[in-house]
Design a protein around this nucleic acid. Structure first.
Length: 830
RNA sequence: GCGGGCAUGGUGUAAUGGCAGCCACGGUGGUCUUAGGAGCCACUGGAGAGAUCCGUGCAGGUUCGAAUCCUGUUGCCCGCACCA
């Protein structure tokens, strides 16, 4: 009989579901293991081939841990609030809830068709009121603890989504989601005080088992820098506070720069000699989108404030004050002292405006370029009492002096901004706050949670930037929970990242009505042992959820200071680029592609997209080759951490492998309960290799080892060897293994059988092939007894025919020999 | 500009100081066949008839020995980007 994957996969998926084979318990004698993958956003397009890569990898880990006797929590759910669903609902006049339900049903079907060992009893959905009740509850705790606040501030505004965006959602000045330009807009916004946790979010990374690039990216994003705040005075008498990481260069400050939005400018405006010019510059800066600011950042612009000067506190020198948009109002104090000799941007500005450049750290040529090294390379000059010190010595010395003079202090700054936590859209969690004209912002009493979304006629965002909820007057108008007077509900909703910031906790106890999860469940399962997800979430979801978790830890809700013990990340799956020049034979065609698509035509692989027509639908692959082949291929495609290109041909190779596994199983006869002597070390080696490679997240080489084993023993495999082979393959291709296990009459179900053991001892061969080098170059190989004495190996090497011939030809005598046990002999001859 | 990563056959890749190219795709030849876009077998880094020689982006270095470590350099990818 042939390998009929369609019937087999349907059969086993049904059995697993009916037996609840992969359900786990909260508690028990077994050691717990919590494996987590990022839950998907259930889009209308369905599962992308990118999804099965991380999901299959963690499924393999979960399945192996289960076979190793652990109590494994491996859950799945849906992060279902969000704009695409809402936009689809608007376009097709359907309620977003209906769209969400339809999409989830499709995702669930697709996930089940891949045979993942999720505990389906724990499925969650962030748009379920029973779920978002607790999202709202956490928000209220933050509000009560002063971490959620509303403030008027310039925000990122997407001109197409008509919605504010978090800093993390803006890339190169455009909306990360839709690619439209983002502009700055003054708006009153709910914010979360993530900056309060900045230090802990950086420092606690140290003890986490995260891959290095995730730690680095989070550290860079938080962007902690140490420096000093220094108070300058103006000739009009005001104090101007600046932030600098280089207080050592204070004597070299030859001018100052304020951001165009700085408050002192308004105060001075009356007294300025050039108010028109200043106002014009401010207006121009305000009108620029982030994109324009980014594009124009090479050329420095600015306006000198006429009629006011700054006074350098270290030497009393009067220096000019400029406004320029290279100084950001949102970082530091929005004002800087400019030291052109030792800062690249200040240098460029000084050159453009003909300002003096005073060297205060010797070691470079400040007329040619700024000298910016912050180590012991340079010596302080032109700097009064700092002269002769290195930069490293000067920084604490000047900081101490500033503190003594009462005009400055050490200061730490962060690039991290507070999190803009509101969206002017319908399909999100309502913010459970009431605005009372008497009492102000009032938290909704917890017993009134969840605060449900009202049904509305239209989900269209309004042009004035208000949420569609603002038009639902019977929902908006309410009474104040505090004073009972008339009040209005908050009409903004939470951003998409809200629900996903704590979802891993809900899986621990998903049906709890009393708490987000029981104390016992949280104690038992925390922390997540292994979390795999995309690099694109490093500074968004991953950072946000660490922040929420730390807050929940501080108020005693969760038992651990960090949510995830280990974090790994997968590479993207790319599609073939139809415009790639390598696809074309004639020079004319190549030129045509280059002309049309530019450097894009030089990439063989690109992100899959509908417009390129290179999208692969998992349903099609499963229909043609089966889920086991699909799983195997996405794991075999290449290094898990790197981007990989989908190859329709390579999929066939995985199908062929499974066909051969089927044929091998059918051919096995007899009742051997032990490996044959001939295959002994081979079996043990493969068990070791597969065991270690799964733990090291190298599924590609584990599969290669299984393919090698099949090639080696396929035609003389005994029953014991087949049993182990099926168990090793089972996490990768569970359906075919369970089927063959049953057909061959093994006991129980392969998927939950005990993971095979190996012994180091039996991994060793009796005789080994050793390479023989002469002066480091390979000249032959010898067969030697394993672990033989070095002298025996050398003797055997010298006796080898090829080696002897070479030595005779070359002449000279043996000076030295290096033996690497069981591997190599290197003869040094001169 | 800053931070990180990568570079190996026709292709995806493997080897992380010890026989470069495991495994797979593709290719060539054979076999079976009414047929082969199925299966099976053999070969498949380059040059050479061969013994051999050459070969991991490029140039150096360390080492008995380097794809692997170090220095420099070129190209590509990712993240951040006027963060003082």
């Amino acid at each position: 009989m042939n390998y009929e994957f369609e019937a087999i996969e349907a059969k086993w998926q049904k059995i697993w579901e009916e037996k609840k084979l992969y359900a786990c318990q909260n508690g028990g004698d077994k050691e717990k293991f919590y494996a987590l993958v990022e839950f998907p956003y259930p889009s209308g397009e369905g599962l992308h081939v990118g999804h099965p890569r991380p999901y299959t990898a963690m499924d393999i880990i979960a399945r192996k841990k289960r076979m190793e006797g652990k109590n494994v929590l491996f859950p799945m759910g849906y992060d279902a609030f969000g704009l695409p669903t809402e936009n689809y609902a608007i376009k097709h006049h359907i309620h977003p809830r209906a769209v969400t339900e339809k999409n989830i049903a499709n995702f669930r079907r697709q996930l089940k068709s891949l045979g993942y060992s999720f505990d389906w009893d724990r499925e969650i959905n962030t748009t379920d009121p029973k779920y978002f009740k607790w999202t709202q509850w956490i928000f209220l705790q933050m509000f009560k603890n002063g971490l959620a606040y509303k403030t008027k501030m310039p925000v990122n505004w997407c001109t197409s989504c008509k919605c504010v965006l978090a800093n993390e959602e803006v890339t190169e000045g455009v909306c990360e989601r839709c690619g439209s330009p983002v502009i700055r807009k003054e708006k009153s916004q709910w914010m979360l005080r993530i900056t309060k946790y900045a230090d802990r979010l950086v420092d606690d990374l140290e003890n986490l088992d995260y891959i290095e690039r995730v730690k680095l990216q989070q550290t860079n994003w938080i962007g902690r820098s140490h420096g000093a705040e220094v108070t300058f005075r103006s000739t009009l008498g005001d104090e101007i506070l600046v932030y600098t990481t280089r207080p050592d260069t204070l004597f070299g400050a030859t001018y100052m720069v304020l951001s165009p939005e700085h408050e002192l400018i308004g105060k001075w405006m009356e007294k300025l000699e050039n108010p028109e010019e200043v106002r014009a510059y401010q207006a121009a800066a305000a009108a620029k989108s982030d994109l324009e600011r980014t594009e124009l950042n090479k050329e420095k612009t600015g306006v000198k404030l006429g009629g006011v000067m700054g006074i350098n506190p270290v030497n009393g020198k009067e220096i000019p004050i400029f406004i320029s948009d290279y100084v950001l109002s949102t970082y530091g104090t929005g004002a800087i002292m400019a030291v052109p000799a030792h800062d690249d941007r200040d240098w460029a500005f000084a050159k453009a405006f003909g300002l003096p450049i005073i060297e205060v750290v010797a070691g470079g040529n400040v007329e040619e370029a700024a000298f910016t090294l912050k180590d012991d390379t340079g010596i302080m000059v032109n700097s009064g009492f700092l002269n002769g010190m290195t930069v490293r010595q000067a920084i604490p010395a000047i900081t101490k002096w500033l503190e003594e003079q009462g005009i400055g202090r050490a200061k730490t700054n962060y690039k991290l901004r507070d999190w803009v936590f509101a969206r002017q859209r319908y399909w999100g969690e309502p913010i459970p706050i009431v605005h009372c004209p008497v009492c102000g912002q009032v938290a909704l009493p917890e017993e009134q949670l969840p605060l449900l979304l009202p049904d509305v006629e239209s989900y269209e965002p309004t042009d004035d930037g208000e949420s569609p909820l603002s038009a639902i007057t019977d929902w908006v108008n309410t009474t104040c929970p505090k004073c009972g007077g008339p009040a209005k509900r908050e009409t903004d909703t939470m951003p998409q990242w809200a629900g996903s910031s704590w979802y891993y906790l809900r899986y621990m106890d998903p049906h709890n009505d009393e708490a987000l999860a029981s104390k016992e469940a949280l104690e038992y399962w925390s922390p997540v042992d292994w979390y795999n997800g995309g690099m694109e979430h490093t500074t968004l979801h991953l950072l946000y959820s660490r922040f929420w978790h730390k807050f929940l830890y501080d108020i005693g809700v969760v038992p651990t200071p960090e949510p995830y013990a280990k974090r790994t990340s997968h590479g993207m799956i790319l599609g073939a680029n139809p415009h790639y020049v390598g696809n074309f034979d004639t020079q004319e065609q190549k030129d045509e592609m280059l002309r049309k698509y530019g450097s894009d035509a030089l990439r063989p692989a690109v992100k899959m997209s509908k417009s390129l027509g290179n999208v692969v639908n998992p349903d099609d692959v499963i229909r043609e080759y089966g889920a086991d082949t699909m799983r195997l291929y996405v794991m075999f495609i290449g290094d898990f951490e790197k981007a990989a290109t989908w190859s329709p041909n390579a999929v066939k190779g995985c199908k062929r492998f499974l066909d051969r596994v089927w044929a091998m199983a059918e051919s096995v006869t007899g009742d051997a309960a032990e490996y044959s002597a001939e295959n002994m070390s081979r079996m043990h080696k493969t068990v070791k290799k597969v065991t270690e490679d799964i733990d090291a997240l190298k599924p590609n080489t584990a599969i290669a080892a299984l393919m090698t084993l099949l090639n080696e023993i396929g035609d003389h495999c005994n029953r014991a060897e087949l049993k182990t082979f099926l168990q090793l393959l089972s996490p990768f291709a569970p359906h075919i293994c369970d089927e063959l296990w049953e057909r061959k009459g093994f006991e129980g179900i392969c998927s939950v059988s005990q993971w095979p053991a190996y012994s180091e001892d039996k991994c060793r061969d009796q005789t080994v092939t050793m390479a023989v080098q002469v002066n480091g170059k390979l000249r032959g190989t010898i067969q030697a007894e394993a672990d033989c004495a070095d002298s025996d190996a050398v003797a055997a090497a010298l006796a080898d025919e090829k080696v002897a011939r070479f030595l005779a030809k070359q002449g000279g005598s043996l000076r030295k020999s290096i033996v690497v046990k069981n591997k190599l002999v290197n003869l040094i001859v001169k």
